[in-house]
Computed example of a mutant assay.
Amino acid sequence: MNKAILIFGMLFSLSALGSEQYDGIPDKFMELVAKGESEAALDSFFGKPKDPKKVTAESIYAKEKSVKILNQFGKYYFHEKISEEKIGSRYALLTYIIGYDEKPLFISISLYKKENSWAVKSYKTNSNYKELVKDVNEGT
């Protein structure tokens, strides 16, 4: 009986850890992308601006460009995490493949945990995995 409780407890804690990893940020993003809600997916990374007057033309353009990229390859089919690089316990670089009708899209997401919660620091997309890895490694 005690072994059964111990095993159940371990399984429960592992599933809870997986679903709450990085405060659920990548999961929420992918869930919205799967629904075709690209703008909301990007908002889930950084949130909506508190003061719309402080939004720059550059940030509006960057968001519009990202939404266009997420929508340009047709129907969404799947996503899968293909790499996870942790630097200590407070920084992570996650790379996903998103399968679309026309071709795959790769996205790398940099996450940072300042105090008690994770936040997206940056992200990059590319339909060519080798170019994405090169860009991420060069910091461009």
Rank of each mutant, 00 (worst) to 15 (best):
I60W: 05
L42A: 05
G47K: 05
S59V: 11
E58G: 06
M30C: 10
K68N: 15
E31V: 04
V33T: 04
K54F: 02
A41D: 04
V67H: 05
Y61D: 10
K68E: 15
A41G: 12
I69A: 15
S59A: 12
E39A: 10
A34V: 11
A40P: 00
G47Y: 05
E39Y: 03
G74F: 08
S66I: 05
V33S: 01
L32Q: 15
S66M: 10
K75R: 14
K54M: 06
Y76H: 15
K53H: 09
V33H: 01
K63Q: 14
A41W: 10
K35V: 03
K65Y: 13
K35H: 05
F29T: 01
G36L: 10
G36D: 09
I60L: 13
V55Y: 08
L32M: 11
L32V: 07
F29K: 03
K54D: 06
S66E: 03
L32E: 13
A57T: 13
G47Q: 07
N71W: 04
E58Q: 13
I60N: 10
S38V: 00
S38T: 02
K48Q: 13
G74D: 02
F46M: 04
P49W: 07
L32F: 10
I60K: 15
N71F: 03
Y77Q: 06
I69S: 11
K75M: 09
V33F: 03
F45H: 05
D51F: 14
F78K: 14
A40H: 06
G47F: 09
A57H: 03
Y77P: 00
A57W: 04
E80S: 12
K53L: 14
G36F: 09
S44K: 03
G36C: 05
F73K: 00
V67N: 06
Y61L: 11
S38R: 02
E58F: 12
V33G: 02
T56Y: 08
K50T: 08
E64W: 05
S59K: 13
Y61A: 13
K75V: 12
I69W: 00
V67K: 09
A41I: 08
K54T: 02
G47H: 07
I60Q: 14
P49C: 08
A40N: 12
K50A: 07
Y76F: 15
F73Q: 01
L70D: 00
S44A: 15
K63A: 03
V55P: 08
P49N: 07
S59D: 12
M30G: 03
E64F: 05
F45M: 07
T56P: 10
P52F: 07
E80D: 14
I69V: 15
T56R: 09
H79F: 08
F78R: 14
K68H: 13
V55E: 12
E37Q: 15
I60A: 12
K53Q: 14
I60F: 06
A57Y: 03
K48M: 12
D51N: 15
D51R: 13
S44D: 06
F46E: 04
E39I: 01
V55K: 01
K75P: 01
L32T: 10
A40M: 08
I60P: 03
H79R: 08
V67D: 07
K35G: 03
K75L: 12
L32C: 09
E31I: 04
V55T: 09
L42D: 05
E31N: 13
I69Q: 13
A41E: 06
V67Y: 06
K35M: 11
E80Y: 06
K54N: 10
P49R: 06
F73P: 01
K68F: 14
A41Q: 09
E31G: 13
K48P: 03
G74C: 12
Y76I: 05
